[in-house]
Write a protein that binds this DNA or RNA. Structure first.
Length: 571
RNA sequence: CGGGGCGUAGCGCAGCUUGGUAGCGCGCACGGUUCGGGACCGUGAGGUCGGAGGUUCAAAUCCUCUCGCCCCGACCA
């Protein structure tokens, strides 16, 4: 491609609505543009990267025996109604009425649709196992789209669905996808962890997330520093904790302190001065578990694990009480709630009850209590209800957990018969007996991965694409006003193309600085610079985007040198 | 949905407090000089000031409503 004819609208300045590196760089380097919140156009360069990722995904899915198909995105509501997700999905489902008033929606994921297809067409164990996948747009009216391509309302997903005759066979399919995903993420040049995860609205029994490590990720995960245990903090387990009661001989008398405008733990710590840390405070949160009001207490520096709390309470979902509901239940404003003299059920984490002489909300606005101790001043059911964090013992070995942030790039699920039961998808076995088909489903956020790769591969100057996903492998940059560099660069460019190397020829009449800046911004892995100065010695320059120095190469050898450099980058 | 911020030329911003000619930088077009890390000079094109209503002789500026975008939280395969 000749740069002078290419649609690559780069920006010198950072667009004001972008804050994440991937978002800023995709806009600045001309890979994408925003149309609305969470709705993006992929420009030619972005589309080339998308196709590169899709190719890798297809190769690995096909190699695992999955077959590609294409289901519609515009769907009659009846299938989600059949599974119950028409209600369960709530406002996240983008609903549409047709001219006759019929109820439709855009597909957020396709378990029901593929299950319907399979129940119509698959009748016999002889047709199983089966794994079907597609790469297409998905629609979710996210409560808060954000961070460019990382959380969109329209995005491209690879979704695969496996169908088996038994739990054992389904687990083998799951394991095969697990292995495929490893190869995909490795080929994409990503640093990632596979973590145990919650199944969420998809339903099912077991799931694992492929989390791309990045400080800008939305998810928190913990991983053991010694064994392979890793989990999303939503469900992470941790080794046993003592939960020792505080020593009564060291307890000080309770003191009530007026603490205006201290609603958060940070504000409380700041109010009580430099000797107090968050670990000496208690965080009290009011939840609605079904109809019951529950006060959950964790140490101030810890976070509540809501999924874990809900499971231990035996309810499907917990609702954090609104400001008004807290006021009604406790007669206290948020920020001043505490366990002392709380009327209802109190659940406290072992680490919370061990705090000696804790600071906590007084249950009265605007006061806090000092020197609160479990056993003496309040009594709680002690359950492990906080999220795991750095320093916690590993549940599986003697190692220690570390906290990371991640971007959920893939998620694989064992579904069992969750959908096949509801939708009556069955097969006949050798005996002629009918059984529900055992399913699994496997998603990769393809457009999200474009952004995730940039989050891991960039510097101050721009993107640094891994060679397998780069939109072009080489940019040939003639510089200077003479004819000779352009002539020579064009010759090199055409030879590279003849060799099957994707190259961009920067034939614009720009000054060298502009071309270098753009080449770095775009992130093309290799740059060949052709200038009059080098040509006098018969050389051109070869530079890797990830290295600071370039190397002089005899012009006659540049194609083989380029091939060698690409091979080195690929390995 | 709660909290905070922002909407003025393609992009980044000033002007608004105290109402009165819509500005700056980059980019774009043309001419000239320049040419190895986002050059310089000159000329020029380009704006329903997010939208609607109101106050006023007069609104980018004041008031009301509304739409959109970003961030934090709630929520979320």
């Amino acid at each position: 491609m000749r740069y002078s004819r290419a649609f690559i609208p780069t920006l010198k300045e950072v667009p004001k609505d972008a804050t994440m590196p991937s978002h800023i760089l995709m806009l600045r380097a001309g890979y994408a543009r925003m149309v609305g919140a969470g709705i993006y156009e992929l420009l030619p360069l972005g589309t080339r990267v998308l196709h590169k990722i899709e190719k890798i995904v297809r190769e690995e899915m096909d190699a695992a025996g999955a077959q590609e198909l294409l289901m519609p995105t515009f769907l009659p509501g009846e299938y989600f109604k059949e599974s119950g997700r028409w209600e369960l999905y709530g406002p996240t489902l983008l609903r549409i009425k047709d001219r006759k008033g019929g109820e439709y929606h855009l597909g957020p994921t396709h378990e029901e649709i593929v299950t319907d297809l399979v129940r119509r067409e698959v009748k016999s164990y002889r047709q199983l196992p089966l794994n079907l996948y597609q790469i297409q747009n998905k629609y979710r009216d996210e409560p808060r789209p954000r961070a460019g391509l990382l959380r969109c309302r329209e995005f491209i997903m690879k979704d695969a669905y496996s169908f088996d005759v038994s739990d054992e066979a389904a687990l083998a399919s799951y394991q095969q996808m697990h292995d495929s995903y490893h190869r995909i993420f490795q080929r994409l040049g990503l640093e990632y962890r596979v973590v145990e995860a919650d199944s969420g609205a998809i339903g099912g029994k077991q799931s694992a997330e492929f989390q791309v490590l990045a400080q800008t990720g939305e998810d928190w995960i913990v991983a053991c520093d010694e064994c392979d245990y890793a989990a999303n903090v939503e469900i992470a387990r941790r080794g046993p904790v003592a939960g020792a009661e505080p020593d009564p001989s060291k307890m000080l008398p309770v003191e009530k302190v007026e603490t205006p405008n201290t609603h958060t733990i940070e504000e409380v710590v700041a109010f009580f001065g430099p000797d107090v840390t968050a670990a000496q405070t208690l965080k009290s949160l009011v939840y609605l578990a079904s109809d019951e009001i529950v006060l959950a207490v964790v140490r101030g520096d810890h976070e509540i694990n809501e999924i874990g709390l809900a499971r231990q309470l035996g309810v499907d979902a917990l609702l954090l009480a609104s400001d008004a509901a807290v006021k009604e239940a406790t007669n206290t404003e948020i920020g001043f709630v505490g366990p002392v003299d709380f009327g209802g059920r109190i659940i406290a984490d072992p680490d919370a009850v061990s705090v000696l002489n804790a600071i906590t909300g007084a249950g009265e606005t605007p006061y806090h209590l000092k020197n609160v101790n479990h056993g003496r001043d309040y009594t709680a059911e002690v359950l492990s209800i906080r999220q795991a964090t750095s320093g916690d013992p590993c549940p599986n070995c003697n190692g220690t957990l570390q906290l990371y942030r991640g971007i959920e790039g893939g998620h694989i699920f064992v579904l069992g018969t969750h959908y096949s039961d509801k939708m009556n998808a069955t097969f006949l076995d050798e005996e002629g007996d009918s059984h529900p088909i055992v399913m699994g489903c496997y998603g990769i956020g393809v457009t999200r991965l474009i952004a995730a790769i940039i989050e891991q591969h960039h510097d101050e100057e721009g993107i640094r694409w891994p060679v397998h996903v780069a939109p072009y492998q080489v940019i040939v940059t003639p510089i200077g006003k003479d004819e000779e560099p352009l002539t020579k660069a064009t010759e090199i460019y055409e030879t590279l193309r003849d060799q099957g190397i994707e190259a961009l020829l920067d034939d614009r009449s720009e000054r060298p600085g502009v071309k270098f800046k753009d080449a770095d911004l775009l992130g093309i892995p290799l740059r060949i610079t052709v200038g009059s100065r080098g040509l006098k010695q018969g050389t051109v320059e070869l530079k890797k985007r990830i290295e600071a120095e370039s190397e002089d190469v005899p012009a006659a050898d540049i194609v083989s040198a380029t091939q060698a450099a690409l091979a080195a980058l690929r390995s």
